[in-house]
Design a protein around this nucleic acid. Structure first.
Length: 740
DNA sequence: ACACGATGTCATCTA
DNA sequence: CGTAGATGACATCGT
C-alpha cells in the first residue's frame, strides 16, 4: 500500500499526464502490474472534481470523515470498476489502454518497431510459404502496397502513424477489423499484409529457418495455403491489370485472421521479447475473454475441420498441453519453427494463452489473437476465433485453463468482478444495452458493499486488537474504534453524532460531500475489511477532528471489552492525544461549547451562541480562531480532494482522448481502405472497358497510346495518352494549389 | 536520521 | 466590511 501511495503522488501523476499530453505514453501500471493494482484503478470511477458546491454544508451534517479517497478501499473499488469497464469496453471494440500503453512503453526503447523487428517472425510462417507460391508478384506487391498506403495517408495529411512505428494496439485492432471488412468486400488480405511479411522476412531471414519451416508445410495444408494465397494475391489492388478473382471459400473465411498477425507481430514482438509484466495483464484478460467466448460461442465444427486440417506428426506439438494431432499444434510448431528466438519468449505464456491464439488462427494465421493486443481485437475477431475453435480445442483449452486460470484471474477478480462479468456476459448474450448492465452493476455494487461491510467489520475489530502487538494500546484502540465507526457508517446512515456527544469531546464531524456519497459508501466497507490486515491499519488513520467522534463513541458508550479496570485513565489520555490542538485550547479556555458548533454553526446561530455566554476576549478570540481554522481545515481537505480528482479526471481525459484518437485513426484507415477499394474497382472496370474497345479495324487500342477519360457527366471518352497525361497533371496541381 | 505522505495552519485572494 | 471558501506555502506528525 505504501508503494501504491507513492505512485499516487501528484508529481508522478502530473508527470504522467504531461507526458501523455505531449504524446509520450507512459503507463505506470506497467511497473505495478504484478503486486499492485494499476494506478488507473484508483483513477477510474466517478469523481467530482469540479463540483465544489454545496458539499460543505451537507458534509458537516453527514458524518464524520468518511474515508479518504486515497485509502485502499478505493483501490479495490476502482480495481473492480476498471476491470468492469474494460469488460464493457470489449463490447465497444475498445482496447484496454493499459495494454496499449504498456506495450508502447516497452517498445519504444527498442527502437523502431515497424516491421523491422527480428522477432516479428511470428506471423511469418504463413508468409514464407506464401512467398513461394505467389512468387513473382510478391516483391512488387509489397512495394506497391506499402507505398500506396503511405501515399494515401500522406494525401490526407496523415502522419502515417497507423502503418509505421506509432501503431498502437487500437490501431492494430482497427487494422484487423479493416482487414476483415476488406475480406467481406472481397479484397484479399495478402495485398496489404504482404509488405509487412516481406519486410519481416528480409530482416529475419537469419533468425528463421526457412527450410525447416517449409518442410513443416507439406501436403494438403500447404496446397490449400498456396491456393488461398494465390487467389488472394490476385486481388491485389495494386495490379489493376489483374481483375479481381473469385475468392475461395477458405480464403474468405481464413484470411481475415491471416493479416493481423503480420502487423501485430511486428509490433508485438518487442513486447514478447521484452518484459512479461504487461503481458500478465493481457494474459489475464485473454483468459477472461477466452472463458467468455468459450461459453458464449458455438463452435463451427465444419469450418474448424477444414481450417485445422494440418500435417500430422509435429514433434513440437508435445510441448504444449494441447492434444497432439490437433491442427493447433501444427500452428504452434510452425510458429516455433519460424520464430526461432521468439519461441523461448513464448514459453512464458501459459498454455491456455497460447492455445487460444493458435486455435483461432488457421495454419495460415498463427498467433493472431495470441497477441494479447488483439485480445480486445474486438468481439468480431474473437468471435471469429471462437468459430474456428475445434471442439476438442475447446475441451483442451478448458482443461489446461482449469488449473491455471484461477490464479491470474484470482488476482484481478474478486467476487464483484466475477459477478459483473457474468452480468456483462448476460448483457451481451441477451442484448442488454450497456446502460442496463451498468444499472445492474450499481445494484450489485451496493449489495456487495453491504455484505463486505457486515462480514468483515467484526473480524476487523478482533484482528486489529489482537494483531497490533507492537503498537501501543492506544493505537490498537484507535484502529478498532475507527473500524467500528466505519462499519456503523457503512451499515447505517450515520447521522452526525457529534452533537449528542459530550460537549468538549465532540468535535466537528468532518465528512465528505454528498457527491462522494457513492464514493464514500464504497470506501466505508473497505477500511474494516482492510483492517483485517495488520499492516494496513494505518491506512484508515484519522487525525484530530475526524478521530475525535469515533474515539468518543468508544468512550461514551459502554466500552466493549477494551475499557476495563484502570484503563479509563489510558482512555482519557488517549482522548487527550486524539483531541486537536484547538480542542485542547478550547478546553483550557473552558469554552462552554463544542468546537464542532464553533466551526459548523451558521453565522447567525454562532453569534447567537456566543451571545448566550459571557466570554472573555481571549475566549472569543480563541473561538474565532477555532472557527477559522476549522473551516479552513475543511476547506483544505476539500481543496486537496478536488485537486486529486482533478488530476484523476485529467488522466481519464487523456485516456479518453487517446481512445478517440485511436478511433479516428481507425476510421481514417477504414476510409482509406474503402477509397482504395473503389479505386481498384475503377481500375478493373477501366481495364475491362479498355480491353474491349476496338478501333475501326477491329484491333484493340494500345494502352500506351490511348486512355479512357472520365467525363464529369459520367461518360467515358477514349483519348490519346498524351492528352490524358496532360489533364492528369492539371488535376494533380489543383489540389496542391489548394493546399498552399 | 531521513524521506515522504497526510494533515493542519496561515496568508492571501475571490465571491 | 465581514464571512466563507479556495488555494499555495509551510509546519507538523506519523510511518
Amino acid at each position: 500500500m505504501l508503494s501504491l501511495k507513492k505512485y499516487l503522488t501528484e508529481g508522478l501523476l502530473q508527470f504522467t499526464i504531461l507526458l501523455s499530453l505531449i504524446g509520450v505514453r507512459v503507463d505506470v501500471d506497467t511497473y505495478l502490474t504484478s503486486q499492485l493494482p494499476p494506478l488507473r484503478e484508483i483513477i477510474l470511477g466517478p469523481s467530482s472534481a469540479y463540483t465544489q458546491t454545496q458539499f460543505h454544508n451537507l458534509r458537516n451534517t453527514l458524518d464524520g470523515y468518511g474515508i479518504h479517497p486515497k485509502s485502499i478501499d478505493l483501490d479495490n473499488y476502482f480495481t473492480a470498476r476498471r476491470l468492469l469497464s474494460q469488460v464493457r469496453a470489449l463490447d465497444r471494440f475498445q482496447v484496454p489502454t493499459t495494454e496499449v500503453n504498456a506495450w508502447l512503453v516497452h517498445r519504444d526503447p527498442e527502437g523502431s518497431v515497424s516491421g523491422s523487428q527480428p522477432s516479428s517472425g511470428l506471423a511469418l510462417e504463413s508468409s514464407s510459404g506464401l512467398q513461394d507460391v505467389t512468387g513473382p508478384d510478391s516483391g512488387v506487391r509489397e512495394s506497391e502496397t506499402e507505398q500506396g498506403y503511405g501515399e494515401d495517408l500522406e494525401d490526407l495529411g496523415a502522419v502515417a502513424p497507423p502503418v509505421s512505428g506509432d501503431l498502437t494496439k487500437e490501431d492494430i485492432d482497427l487494422i484487423d477489423i479493416l482487414w476483415r471488412q476488406d475480406i467481406d468486400l472481397g479484397a484479399g488480405r495478402e495485398i496489404f499484409d504482404y509488405s509487412h511479411r516481406q519486410k519481416e522476412q528480409d530482416v529475419d531471414k537469419e533468425l528463421r529457418d526457412g527450410a525447416e519451416q517449409e518442410s513443416t508445410w507439406p501436403g494438403e495444408g500447404a496446397e490449400a495455403l498456396a491456393h488461398n494465397l494465390l487467389v488472394d494475391g490476385e486481388t491485389g489492388e495494386s495490379f489493376p491489370a489483374q481483375f479481381p478473382a473469385d475468392i475461395s471459400s477458405i480464403a474468405e473465411a481464413v484470411p481475415s485472421e491471416s493479416e493481423p498477425p503480420g502487423l501485430q507481430n511486428n509490433l508485438l514482438s518487442p513486447l514478447l521479447t521484452g518484459t512479461e509484466s504487461p503481458f500478465d495483464l493481457e494474459q489475464q484478460w485473454q483468459d477472461l475473454m477466452s472463458i467468455m467466448e468459450m461459453q458464449a460461442m458455438e463452435v463451427n465444427t465444419s469450418t474448424s475441420e477444414i481450417l485445422y486440417n494440418a500435417p500430422p506428426g509435429d514433434p513440437l506439438s508435445t510441448n504444449y498441453s494441447l492434444a497432439p494431432n490437433t491442427p493447433i499444434n501444427q500452428n504452434v510448431s510452425l510458429h516455433q519453427a519460424s520464430l526461432g528466438g521468439c519461441s523461448q519468449d513464448f514459453s512464458l505464456f501459459s498454455p491456455e494463452v497460447e492455445s487460444l491464439p493458435v486455435a483461432s488462427s488457421s495454419m495460415l494465421l498463427p498467433l493472431v489473437p495470441s497477441n494479447s493486443t488483439s485480445l480486445n481485437s474486438t468481439f468480431g475477431s474473437t468471435n471469429l476465433a471462437g468459430l474456428f475453435f475445434p471442439p476438442q480445442l475447446n475441451g483442451s483449452t478448458n482443461d489446461t485453463a482449469g488449473p491455471e486460470l484461477p490464479d491470474p484471474l484470482g488476482g484481478l477478480l474478486d467476487e464483484a468482478m466475477l459477478d459483473e462479468i457474468s452480468l456483462m456476459d448476460l448483457a451481451i448474450e441477451e442484448g442488454f444495452n450497456p446502460v442496463q448492465a451498468s444499472q445492474l452493476e450499481e445494484e450489485f455494487d451496493s449489495d456487495s458493499g453491504l455484505s463486505l461491510d457486515s462480514s468483515h467489520s467484526p473480524s476487523s475489530l478482533s484482528s486489529s486488537e489482537g494483531s497490533s502487538s507492537s503498537s501501543s494500546s492506544s493505537s490498537s484502540s484507535a484502529s478498532s474504534s475507527a473500524s467500528s465507526s466505519f462499519s456503523e457508517e457503512g451499515a447505517v446512515g450515520y447521522s452526525s453524532d457529534s452533537e449528542t456527544l459530550d460537549l468538549e469531546e465532540a468535535e466537528g464531524a468532518v465528512g465528505y460531500q454528498p457527491e462522494y456519497s457513492k464514493f464514500c459508501r464504497m470506501s466505508y466497507q473497505d477500511p474494516s475489511q482492510l483492517s483485517c490486515l495488520p499492516y494496513l491499519e494505518h491506512v484508515g488513520h484519522n487525525h484530530t477532528y475526524n478521530m475525535a467522534p469515533s474515539a468518543l463513541d468508544s468512550a461514551d458508550l459502554p466500552p466493549p471489552s477494551t475499557v476495563k479496570k484502570g484503563s479509563k485513565e489510558k482512555q482519557a489520555d488517549f482522548l487527550d492525544k486524539q483531541m486537536s490542538r484547538d480542542e485542547h485550547r478550547a478546553r483550557a479556555m473552558k469554552i462552554p461549547f463544542t468546537n464542532d458548533k464553533i466551526i459548523n454553526l451558521p453565522v447567525e446561530e454562532f453569534n447567537e451562541l456566543l451571545s448566550k455566554y459571557q466570554l472573555s476576549e481571549a475566549q472569543l478570540s480563541l473561538i474565532r480562531d477555532i472557527r477559522r481554522r476549522g473551516k479552513n481545515k475543511m476547506a483544505a481537505q476539500n481543496c486537496r480532494k478536488r485537486k486529486l480528482d482533478t488530476i484523476l479526471n485529467l488522466e481519464r481525459d487523456v485516456e479518453d482522448l487517446q481512445r478517440d484518437k485511436a478511433r479516428l485513426l481507425r476510421e481514417k484507415v477504414e476510409f482509406l481502405r474503402s477509397l482504395r477499394q473503389m479505386k481498384q474497382k475503377v481500375q478493373s472496370l477501366y481495364q475491362e472497358v479498355f480491353g474491349r474497345l476496338r478501333d475501326e479495324n477491329g484491333r484493340p487500342y494500345s494502352p500506351s497510346q490511348y486512355a479512357l477519360q472520365y467525363a464529369g457527366d459520367g461518360s467515358v471518352l477514349l483519348i490519346p495518352r498524351t492528352l490524358a497525361d496532360q489533364q492528369a497533371r492539371r488535376q494533380e496541381r489543383k489540389p496542391k494549389d489548394r493546399r498552399k
